[in-house]
Each structure stands twice: as structure tokens, then as C-alpha cells.
Amino acid sequence: MASHRRPKQPSRTRVTVLTTAAAAAVALSSQAANAAPSEKPSKDEVKAKVDKLYEEAEHATEKYNGAKEKQEKLQKEISTIQDNVARGQEELNDLRDGLGSMASAQYRSGGIDPSVQLFLSADPDDYLDKASTLDQLSGQQVEALKKIQVKQRELAQQRSEASGKLKDLSSTRTELGKKKSEVQAKLAEAQKLLNTLTAAEKAALAAEEERATRASERTALTTPSAPATGRAASAYSAAQSKIGSPYVYGASGPSSFDCSGLTSWAFAQAGIAIPRTSQAQASAGPRIYSQSDLQVGDLVFFYGDLHHVGFYAGNGQVLHAPRTGTVVRYESINNMPYQFGVRI
């Protein structure tokens, strides 16, 4: 027989809890709907973030340049060693052929010496270690065997050196790839930020930069109190001829440059070889710490890690390749944290 008991009613406590939860959910939903959308970063905020990313990218660029320079140096050294090994092997073969000729002549003149037979069937190093047999050889044969032994040791050492440098080259290439990826990531992030600006905001930023560049150019071209002289004058003149050339990370001319690429290229035009990276260039000559003592054509270095370099242009201005998206241009020395100058 079916039960006719009334279904159990929810308690007042449970109804109250459910009602309260529902009300809270409605309130939160209403607040979310009425909340103001997140504010778009201003043009100046975007510029500050982009400038910071470009600075980080340039720091990575100088590390990239250092790894690239090391790679090129190692490749040259390895090539030289390999050439030396090839020539040494030819010399070793000639020495062995010469000793073989001696043995053949000895055989034709009445039989081959037992000690020479031993040599022909064993390694010369092992043979020379058997000092008791040396008295059976002629002086000429002993000298030939000693030359072979020396040459073999030289070749073994050179091959070992080449092997070590090849391992170093492999790790350098890995580092190079990592730094390249780091630079590209920073530049991509900067570009993503720039893409959030409107066309009008981008135009405004470009106009601001153009006005600052024109002002720096006028100031720099005013007769400086300490004009360039000698080699520095030639290098500075070469750099001036590249005003307007684009900044490209890792580039060292003649049509595009990064900061240390411009300075190293310019001094090369003056017949002076200086290191490729800004950090290495910082030790290329005596340092000038006071800006008042700088002369046109001195190298000037910025930031605590010295990852940026340019030419002092006089009147408180520098001529440099600033960063991605810019060109070789004049700029106030006070736009960056000055460390010291170097006179080449």
C-alpha cells in the first residue's frame, strides 16, 4: 500500500543560506557588469616600457656580439690548426718515406738490419723506447726516427688542441643562438606594445623624437670647445657619414649598425682596429670620467654594465646608433647614464 506521508520540507536555515548565496552571486555579477574596463596604457607609459625592453635587447645584443666574435675567432684558430696538422702529416709521411728508402738501400746492399725490420713492423715510439736496439742503427737512421717521434707528438698535441676548440665552438654556437632568441623576444614584445598605440599616438612619438634629434644636431654642429684630432677625428668623420643609417642588432656596417658596430666600423675606416663589443672597447684606451674633459671623437660609455657606446659629438651631445627602430643620429649625453669616455 502506497505511503501518503507528506514530503519533508526544507528547513528555514537552509532556505536562508540558499537565498543569501543567490543574493551574493547576483551582487557579484552586477558589480562585474558595472566595473569599469581596465584603462589602456597611455602613450608615455607604452614608450617607457618599450624603451626598457629596447635597453634589455641591446644588453643581450652586446652579449650576442661577444659570442659571435668568439665564434669567428675560434673558427680561424681551428682552421689554422687543421692546416698545420695537414702539413705536419705530409712532413711525417716524407720522414717515413725517407726511412723506408734507407731500409730499401740497406736491403739491396746486403740485407736489412733486424732493428730496421723491427721499426717497419712497429710504432716508432715503441721502437725508440727499446734503447738496447739503437746501437744497431746508423746515425742517420736514429736521427730520422727521432724526427718522426717529435713530429708524431706535435701532431697529437695539435689534434688535441683542435678537439678542445671544436667543443668550445659548439658551446659558443649554443650561446649565440640563445642570445639571438633573447634579443628577438625582447624586440617582439616591444613591437607588441607599440601596436597598442593608435596611428595618432605613433605619429606623436615620432614627432617628439624628430624634434629632439634636430635640437641635438644643431647643438652638436655648433663649434665645439674641444674639436676632434688625429685618428679620433677620422673615425668620427666616418661615423658622421653614416647618419641616417638604420640600427640593426649585430650589424657592423657598412649600411646598418648597432652601437658598437658603428664605433668599431668607424675606427676601422681610420685604420685602427678596436674590439667589437662595447664592454671590450671600454678598455681600448685611457678613461675620461669628467664630461668636461671629453673631446669630440672620444668614445663614451653608458649604463653600469657598459652595454652602450657612442662618439662624443661636443657640446654635451653624442653621435650613436641608439636602438631598434632608430637610425644613427645625435642625442643628448644626458639621455643615458654616462659612465666615462675613452680616448683612442
Rank of each mutant, 00 (worst) to 15 (best):
S101N: 11
S101A: 15
S101W: 06
S101M: 07
M102Q: 09
S104D: 13
S104C: 00
S104A: 12
S104W: 03
A105V: 10
Q106C: 07
Q106Y: 03
Y107V: 06
R108G: 10
S109G: 12
S109H: 08
S109E: 14
G110K: 08
G110H: 06
G111P: 02
I112V: 15
I112A: 09
I112T: 14
I112W: 01
D113S: 15
D113G: 08
P114Y: 04
S115A: 15
S115H: 02
S115M: 05
V116R: 00
V116Q: 03
Q117N: 12
Q117D: 10
L118T: 11
L118Q: 10
L118I: 06
L118Y: 07
F119D: 01
F119N: 00
L120S: 13
S121D: 12
S121A: 15
S121N: 12
S121K: 11
S121E: 14
A122D: 10
A122V: 05
A122Y: 04
A122W: 01
D123L: 04
D123Q: 09
P124W: 00
P124N: 05
P124T: 07
D125R: 11
D126I: 05
D126P: 00
D126E: 12
Y127L: 14
L128I: 11
L128T: 04
L128C: 03
L128D: 02
D129Q: 08
D129P: 00
D129M: 10
D129G: 10
D129K: 12
D129R: 07
D129E: 13
K130M: 02
A131I: 04
S132C: 00
S132P: 00
S132V: 00
S132N: 09
T133F: 03
T133C: 00
L134V: 05
L134H: 14
L134D: 07
L134F: 05
D135S: 15
D135V: 13
Q136F: 02
L137P: 01
L137Q: 05
L137D: 01
S138E: 12
S138G: 14
S138F: 06
S138R: 11
Q140D: 15
Q141M: 13
Q141N: 09
V142C: 01
E143Q: 13
E143L: 10
E143I: 07
A144H: 03
A144V: 04
A144D: 02
L145W: 02
L145T: 01
L145C: 04
K146L: 12
K146W: 04
K146M: 13
